[in-house]
C-alpha cells in the first residue's frame, strides 16, 4: 500500500480515468485527483490513483532504480 510508482499516461478515458503504462504493463487508473493531464505526462500512481504529476526525468530515474532492485532480487534467488 505504501509504494507509489511512476507511470506514463497512454490514453485519457471518460469519467476522470486513464490508461497508464508502467514498465510495459497497462493499467486503468483514476486521474480525478490531478488537474489537466495529457497523454505523455508522467504521474505518481498509488492505489489506482494518479497522486501527482511528476518530472519525466525523475520518473525515468525511479523506474531504473526499481528495475535494478528487481534484478538484484533475481541475482540473490
Amino acid at each position: 500500500m505504501c509504494l507509489s510508482v511512476p507511470a506514463k499516461i497512454a490514453k485519457i478515458l471518460p469519467n476522470d480515468m486513464a490508461i497508464v503504462s508502467i514498465d510495459g504493463i497497462s493499467l486503468e487508473i483514476s486521474i480525478a485527483l490531478v488537474d489537466e493531464l495529457e497523454v505523455g505526462d508522467c504521474v505518481l500512481v498509488h492505489v489506482g490513483y494518479a497522486l501527482a504529476k511528476i518530472d519525466p526525468v525523475e520518473a525515468e530515474r525511479t523506474l531504473e532504480l526499481l528495475q535494478q532492485l528487481g534484478s538484484a532480487g533475481e541475482r540473490r534467488s
Partner: peptide, 12 residues
C-alpha cells in the same frame, strides 16, 4: 486505512 496518500482516493 492509511496516511495522507490513501485518504483522497477514499474521498473520491
Amino acid at each position: 486505512i492509511g496516511f495522507e496518500t490513501t485518504t483522497p482516493p477514499t474521498a473520491v
